[in-house]
Design a protein around this nucleic acid. Structure first.
Lengths: 339, 339
DNA sequence: GTGAAAGCGCTAACAT
DNA sequence: ATGTTAGCGCTTTCAC
């Protein structure tokens, strides 16, 4: 076993509490001579603090836990970056655990591994907890906040305004003269998907476009969903623009469209939602409604901080602004039938 | 505060030790009636085990820690998937911490957050520790293994055979009739980069090709490195094939080549190293020497397991086989000048 | 089968 | 400035 403060105390000839004070930098509660000796002994013994013991007595820790829905979402990394940066600023450590987005047992397992130790806050990245697991989380008394996922109950979250996102994407196409606009890759479940669909419909409505059921292709935000959706639309689709609910869907759309002999953006404009690095490394580069994932991460940490401090205003639901980034996958439609 | 076993003991009217036995499933050391009552009370009180306390007394835990060099490497996810799956099989929990790949302080911080609690094993993903941090790791007495990174000292690691990888990639191009072959995005640091370079040179040697210094473009495995490399080679390069040291480099190469008016694979063949999903979502799809990252993760967990069991054979260095996946970015060179 | 008691490594009063 | 003491929540002998 590794050396303990007792070992150091013995070696130096002081009390364990003194060692503790030195090693925890309780300045002004020890003199620099003993401090020297203690530090030297610690070094020599290869001493490592046992945080389990520390956390047990202090009943608090400086670690923030992030629970991530899946290793594969390509924006999780950006959120984690944001969390990391902000955490560092506050002197917190970050640990990440992965949970399958769907499977309730996996979720529970992931949740327990963080709840069962005294973490100071839990951030849940694009994960929708089931009833049981949400209860677990609440009971733990640990400050928490959902990231990149919005809810219509009173859970605290930080997310993009998904209705607005759907609206903006659709409106962008409409403003470029498109009237027949698809929506691809969307899930049928509550929250994100439904909200974006609402925004999409709202934009269509405002433009007086009557929406057709087969403009919508459901999916799960994946590359495959994009390919499948484009297959469904088919080579002879009368759509001139499509909103993709994620970058991966957009790329699936793009590739399949090309295989079908359709030119993007010549025959078909695509606007993607997310705006990760992916948009810039495909050709044509994808126009996107870009979410500020990094900022979500930062805000998440600040939220944990807030809850800890003010104890209450727990259920704040907050939106992070998105921005439109026009790249090469969208174009003005020339033959504006309405002029 | 959350309820403790003491609270449960009081509520049920038994001793804390009994509660402990029930909750830890020490079967046959309690009767099922008390077990019932205890479990019910635990449920009602929303009891959560305090792992800090458990680990303190047991001096061991069932969590494996993965230290990842950066959020951005796009294959880390595959390794983590592998770790996760194998960990689950053994009943271990996984926590992940991120460390900058370069900055020594960040590395240390990440390392300490896992060393300072009783984790049962540490897996380091494509991260090259500095002397100090390596010492820290060794002192901790915790079983560890490097993943996706090879060393020439006696550290335990599991990785692809990087020399072979470089060799295979280059040989593939040679077999297709290419004689002027670049190597792009490689780093100047030891290990991975240097080994792949060796393999590259070996393949060239064997084919009697005399290698030119300007065929090599250094970089850092990033998309940008790829673009920069292609810029350096230039529109009028006499290279007909390029080996990219990562998928991202390959994509950078690909896009820049296209911008320069070069057709891939018509004018230029590209073979990528890694073989992640990225290879399949760009057009043309990238031929690759694919690493089995998932398997690396699995083997990593097994290694931890082994070290724990047999205590010694610690420094085993292990290679995971790679495979060649031909896709669309490589083609036979027609005019074979040597016939 | 269950209770009592000791102790894991550390910190935080409370003394001095 | 430093030593003494108690105790965080749990597991584990050792009794009975």
């Amino acid at each position: 076993m590794s050396a303990t403060i007792k070992d150091i105390a013995n070696k130096v000839g002081v009390a364990p509490s003194t060692v503790s004070r030195v090693l925890s930098n309780k300045t002004k509660y020890y003199n620099s001579l003993t401090a020297e000796k203690v530090k030297k002994a610690a070094e020599e013994l290869g001493y490592k603090k046992n945080q389990a013991a520390v956390e047990l007595v202090k009943r608090e820790s400086n670690v923030i836990a992030a629970v991530v829905s899946s290793v594969k979402t390509n924006f999780a990394g950006e959120i984690i970056d944001g969390i990391q940066e902000e955490a560092l600023k506050h002197g917190y450590d970050l640990i990440v655990v992965y949970a399958g987005s769907a499977d309730s047992d996996e979720q529970k397992r992931a949740l327990l591994t963080v709840i069962e130790r005294p973490v100071m806050g839990i951030l849940l990245l694009s994960i929708a907890l089931g009833e049981d697991n949400l209860k677990l989380l609440k009971e733990s008394q640990i400050p928490y906040c959902f990231l990149s996922m919005a809810f219509d109950d009173n859970r605290p979250f930080i997310s993009s305004d998904d209705e607005e996102v759907g609206y903006k994407a659709t409106k962008l196409l409409i403003d470029k003269g498109h009237r027949k606009i698809g929506l691809a890759g969307i899930d049928k479940f509550p929250y994100t998907g439904r909200l974006r669909l609402q925004g999409y419909k709202k934009a269509l409505d405002e433009a007086g476009i009557v929406f057709q059921e087969d403009w919508i292709q459901t999916g799960d935000y994946s590359y495959l969903s994009g390919e499948k959706a484009m297959d469904q639309y088919g080579k002879d689709t009368d759509l001139t623009g499509i909103v993709a609910v994620s970058d991966m869907v957009a790329i699936g759309l793009l590739n399949k469209a090309r295989n079908l002999g359709l030119n993007v953006p010549g025959d078909l404009s695509i606007v993607s939602i997310d705006g990760t690095e992916m948009c810039r490394i495909v050709q044509p580069q994808l126009t996107s409604i870009s979410q500020n994932f990094f900022e979500m991460g930062k805000s998440g940490v600040q939220r944990i901080e807030d809850i800890k401090k003010h104890k209450k205003l727990v259920n704040l639901q907050q939106m992070i602004p998105t921005r439109i980034e026009e790249r090469q996958s969208t174009t003005q439609k020339e033959n504006l039938t309405y002029f």
